[in-house]
Write a protein that binds this DNA or RNA. Sequence first.
DNA 1: TTCTAAGCGAGACGGTACGTCCAGTCTTCGT
DNA 2: ACGAAGACTGGACGTACCGTCTCGCTTAGAA
Lengths: 198, 198, 198, 198
Amino acid sequence: MTDQPSPPRGRPRDPKSHAAVLDAAFTVLEREGYAATTIERIAAQAGVAKQTIYRWWKGKAPLFMEVLARKANQSVQLPDTGSFQGDLTALLTGTFAAVSTTLRPLMRALAVELLQDEEFAGAMRDVFVQRRRANVRALVQQAIGRSELPVDTDVELVCDLVFGIMWYRLMFDHAPLDKCAARQIACAATAAAVQNNV
Amino acid sequence: MTDQPSPPRGRPRDPKSHAAVLDAAFTVLEREGYAATTIERIAAQAGVAKQTIYRWWKGKAPLFMEVLARKANQSVQLPDTGSFQGDLTALLTGTFAAVSTTLRPLMRALAVELLQDEEFAGAMRDVFVQRRRANVRALVQQAIGRSELPVDTDVELVCDLVFGIMWYRLMFDHAPLDKCAARQIACAATAAAVQNNV
Amino acid sequence: MTDQPSPPRGRPRDPKSHAAVLDAAFTVLEREGYAATTIERIAAQAGVAKQTIYRWWKGKAPLFMEVLARKANQSVQLPDTGSFQGDLTALLTGTFAAVSTTLRPLMRALAVELLQDEEFAGAMRDVFVQRRRANVRALVQQAIGRSELPVDTDVELVCDLVFGIMWYRLMFDHAPLDKCAARQIACAATAAAVQNNV
Amino acid sequence: MTDQPSPPRGRPRDPKSHAAVLDAAFTVLEREGYAATTIERIAAQAGVAKQTIYRWWKGKAPLFMEVLARKANQSVQLPDTGSFQGDLTALLTGTFAAVSTTLRPLMRALAVELLQDEEFAGAMRDVFVQRRRANVRALVQQAIGRSELPVDTDVELVCDLVFGIMWYRLMFDHAPLDKCAARQIACAATAAAVQNNV
DNA sequence: TTCTAAGCGAGACGGTACGTCCAGTCTTCGT
DNA sequence: ACGAAGACTGGACGTACCGTCTCGCTTAGAA
């Protein structure tokens, strides 16, 4: 029994408007900051009616979630340098490069939303956070396979360690997220993973 | 020559209003969530005119900063268990207890603000963040004194590791900040600190 | 080439809101007096958002100007009793009847505004004042046509005399604007018009 | 037995403040218009506390009433040119000179108040309006004494005619209040007074 | 072709909160 | 007791967005 999602009747969604809204959202966010990023401004910037935004997104949060998806969809191919620390350094270098430039305003914006809306926090967690954590988990499994890390390594703690620092620096801006940071954090994570006699 | 800050003229600030606003801010935040916490509602709850709030605070951000100061001013006395890991576990246990209960809504609220306002982010960093980091720094110094940790331990990284995870869990709520978490994080931090051959 | 005032786009103005605001303005004015007649109260009384008032009127002054236009739009048909004094008495009797009852609060309200705003005073002068003066001017021309008044009668002075007294009594309330007043003023105006050897 | 109005105790009223307020009121009124003439601005301009104004006056209305009293207190000495029309022309010339220059903003300001407050309207009527009308009444009596006008001349109507036009022109500014106007109005008033066969 | 359904730009609508201003009152210190 | 300073409650201001609701006009597949 196929689940027919009803035959598409009426005028189909205009892909130009769709794209224009996503672009406008990002543009306004970058130019004016999130506090000034209202639906009205996005609509104006996109040359689109407000209703067209509300028709397709419930609010700013899901809209920016899609913007982030657009910008961050390039599937990361996992590195394999031979050592866990090397792999992690490579992964984080790439991640941090994106996160500290293009994605930075987006992630901060989404953080604002998820801090105020439990439901949206759940959605974000299930989509973006898990995706990134999965990469690290994979590296850990790889290292366990190589017997580089103990089988009972606390994977979640390693993930928390890595992404905790990342978000912390994204929020407070007190230290950079550059290549050097990637190396240091990978080192710390490795040490923590190895010595995981909880 | 003492710096006389001008003799106090006019009617002095009413301490009752002052306290009522701080209490009301916290009450409304807890009861209705930060999204619904408007200046108007706080004023109504406090039985105070809006102007009285605007006279003393520039907006919600500085107001809640003072609320947090009130709630978090109890000076933590540093533990001395004999080992760095023990000390850190003790410190974090106390910190997490506060942060995951009373302070939780406050810290999330302030995060919302600092993510949208660079200037306020700076203020928060200089006051609260530094205060908490100072505690950890002190423990690290203690441990270095005991030759438990190398003299060139990367103190800042240790701090980032600890508070990164704390904020990360505060934001996404994907794991608790309980006694067990304190122990695990202390363990990871110790491992990272010892093995700090950057 | 007709002057196309642009095709109407977007949702058209809601005539119900329009009427509700005008009615509410009048109601509140009558019930609470002009000092208490705020835009907010009018909006509340009309069951309308404040913005809907500000969208269509610049402030209380133009709003009440339209209210007055509504109430006073019945075109007066000029009397023709055979004598100037009779005509004027008839005209003033009708005018005073309206002005001392329904229109009274409106005219006082508009006076408040025009006394504080030169620009609005100009608008009022060009619309309402001129309309009323035109009636008297027409009567004077009629009388000149009948050789009842000299050709060089100072029409403007006659208008000033008549409406001067009307406004003066509207302001200070020291004497009525009834049928008797109409007769007396018509008599005085006639005497002044005849004897106009400046 | 002297009527001691209670022995003056405490610090007596500061005449400098008193004068400063009156001056400031007039200054602000002239410089910024009545709409912008708030008690706060007057107090600031006078270098006086708001309370000092509220202690001595109930509001703007009575305050400006006193300002007007200051400016208009020069007792007019009634002219006696031999004819009613001449006398009236002389009186009005002087009155109009003051009313169309210095007193203009004050009278418009007071008109705003009395239009919104019946009680204050009464006060104004009993003081200023009556004072001015008394002058005209005296001229009429003089003329009756000279048998220039009938004994049953409608004095009140003559007053209304004269001051009606004056206020009307003050409000709408459609015609000047100059010497010429005085002459014309005196002429019209005389004609109306003579022909007063009501 | 005509009909029907939905998308779309435009913009009015009822609301809510903003941050400011002023009204009047109250409280403190100094004269 | 008066006066200057200025904090206080209260309430209206005019503006900005929210999210919803008509409008007239496409733009498609179905009849």
